[in-house]
Every structure is written in structure tokens, then in C-alpha cells.
């Protein structure tokens, strides 16, 4: 295994300066980067920029009507956070499905976002909650909506000198968020399908508003299925709605066959999971 040289800046400002000077591969918990290095998946980076010491990128807090998570927030951190459990349990649920305990202690939300795997477990939840990814560089900060952050297969809107610094998730009154992951086994499995769904409804009898449906492992990047969302907008979670939405989402996605599943399965099960989530919401 080739071990590229690694720099560990003590402050975010130092990190920005280094990134402005040359190209680094940022590394936080290392749960993706080390696998790529030891598995020789692609050419190794020339240099690594260790973000682990940057306490500025830690912490989970409430900022007005938003939940703000530092990029170095680990999955264990999310699972242990009372704020997350109270305000966004779907995020906690998603964090609990990622890898094993050892992985959850090291792997970070920012890393999951920057790694841009189409199967990234957290990403459909971020899509479903209209999260904003805040990135920073020596040139300053900018906010990128989750829906335009992943631009292609393992491609992001990050510029070479930028890193993810925090994630801002708006908290919306009367919003429901659901998460489902279908993997081969019950733990430590890369997903076949990941679903994040949210809608706003003051009561269980209210029509759905602001529907968001984020999907993982069914395209070359995490996606929102806007046609299906548009169909669900303003509807009640009835059997007809569920059946029609399931058909529409199946038609809207173009998954592929790979080592973990088949296109047919992904299409069918995405539709069925959506159907089940709507049925559960409608309690029928």
C-alpha cells in the first residue's frame, strides 16, 4: 500500500492556506480514503490533508430554524446526539445503518458527502430534508443545496481548494422524514436501495406539501425524483396515491445491474418501499 505524505493543519485557516497552495486529498475519519489506498482503487493521491484536528468542524447545534452539523460529526456523534434524536430521528436511523461501530466512530458526515458515493447512506436523507452543504476555502464560504451538490458519478460541486465544513438542515414545522435502506444483510452492507422521503402535513389527514424523495444506489449519484415528488404534492396518502406513486417512481429511475443487485430489483423495490412508506403514513 502506498502511503502518501500527510499534513495535519491545526486550524481551519491553515488548512485553507495549504489547499490554496497545492492539491490535497482531504482525509477525516479515513474510512473511505484508506479503503481506496489499500485496495488500490484508482491512482493514489499525491498528498493527504488530515482534517481530524480541526475542532472548528465539530459540533451539532441548533441555529434558529436549522440543525447545523459540523463536517467532522461522526455517525456515533449523530447517534448519541439528543438534538438529532429529538428533531431529526431519520438522520439518527440512517447513521445507525452505516458500517460497524468502529466505522461509525470514525466516519464523518462531511466525508460521506465529499466521497459522493451513489450508495452513500446519509445522502438521500440530506436530499429529502433540503439540506445545504456549506463549503469553505481561502476565498470564503459558500452554500450549495444538497440537490445540486452531487453532479455525476463520484463528482461534486466542490472546487479543488474547497472542503465541506458544515451541513445545515432546515427544520420545518409539521415535516415528517422517513429513511429506509435495503442491503444484503442487516448490518455492514452497502445498500441495494436507499430511500429518504419527507413531506409537510399538519395532521395525518392533511394533504402532503413540500414532498421530497431522495434515492441512493439507483443512479450514478444520489438523486431526487422530482416527477414523483410533483405527483405526490398536495395528495393524501391513500392506496391510490401509493399505487400511482410507486408506478411513477419505477418509471422515473434508471438503475443498473451490478455486483450488489439488479436493475429490475432496484426499480421494483424502490417502488415498493415508497408504497410501504405511504401506506404507513396513511395507516391503512
Amino acid at each position: 500500500m502506498i502511503e502518501p505524505p500527510l499534513v495535519s493543519p491545526p486550524t481551519l485557516a491553515d488548512a485553507y492556506r495549504l489547499l490554496a497552495e497545492s492539491v490535497y486529498r482531504p482525509i477525516a475519519g479515513g474510512t473511505d480514503v484508506l479503503v481506496q489506498l489499500s485496495g488500490q482503487l484508482g491512482p493514489p493521491p499525491d498528498r493527504l490533508l488530515d482534517l481530524w484536528r480541526l475542532d472548528e468542524l465539530r459540533g451539532i447545534e441548533l441555529d434558529g430554524d436549522a440543525l447545523v452539523l459540523g463536517a467532522l460529526t461522526t455517525y456515533s456523534g449523530i447517534r448519541r446526539s439528543a438534538v438529532c434524536r429529538d428533531l431529526l430521528p431519520a438522520l439518527v436511523e440512517a447513521a445507525a445503518t452505516v458500517g460497524a461501530a468502529q466505522i461509525q466512530n470514525r466516519a464523518t458526515l462531511g466525508g460521506n458527502i465529499a466521497n459522493a458515493s451513489p450508495a452513500g447512506d446519509m445522502l438521500p436523507v440530506l436530499l429529502a430534508t433540503d439540506a445545504t452543504i456549506v463549503v469553505g476555502s481561502i476565498r470564503g464560504e459558500r452554500s450549495i443545496p444538497a440537490r445540486s451538490f452531487w453532479t455525476g458519478y463520484r463528482q461534486t460541486a466542490l472546487r479543488p481548494d474547497e472542503i465541506v465544513i458544515r451541513i445545515r438542515i432546515p427544520l420545518v414545522a409539521d415535516r415528517q422524514v422517513r429513511f429506509r435502506k435495503i442491503g444484503t444483510r442487516r448490518a455492514q452492507a452497502i445498500s441495494k436501495v436507499v430511500v429518504g422521503l419527507s413531506w409537510v402535513a399538519p395532521t395525518s389527514g392533511s394533504p402532503w406539501r413540500t414532498v421530497r424523495l431522495g434515492l441512493g444506489s439507483v443512479a450514478e449519484r444520489p438523486i431526487r425524483v422530482t416527477a414523483t415528488e410533483a405527483f405526490l404534492e398536495g395528495r393524501l396518502p391513500t392506496p391510490d396515491t401509493a399505487a400511482e406513486a410507486a408506478q411513477r417512481v419505477a418509471a422515473e429511475i434508471q438503475p443498473i445491474d451490478d455486483v450488489r443487485s439488479t436493475a429490475d430489483y432496484r426499480r421494483a423495490v424502490t417502488a415498493r418501499v415508497l408504497h410501504r412508506l405511504i401506506r404507513e403514513a396513511g395507516s391503512w
Binding site: R185, R186, Q188
Partner: peptide, 16 residues
């Protein structure tokens, strides 16, 4: 071989 590693070759986990 396309899944010759513990990443994609699925042994049962404790949860199973």
C-alpha cells in the same frame, strides 16, 4: 472474481 473481499462478499453479521 468481482466480489473477492469482505466489502462485497457477505458473511452474516451479528445483526443477522
Amino acid at each position: 472474481p468481482v466480489n473477492a473481499s469482505f466489502l462485497d462478499y457477505m458473511l452474516p453479521s451479528m445483526e443477522d
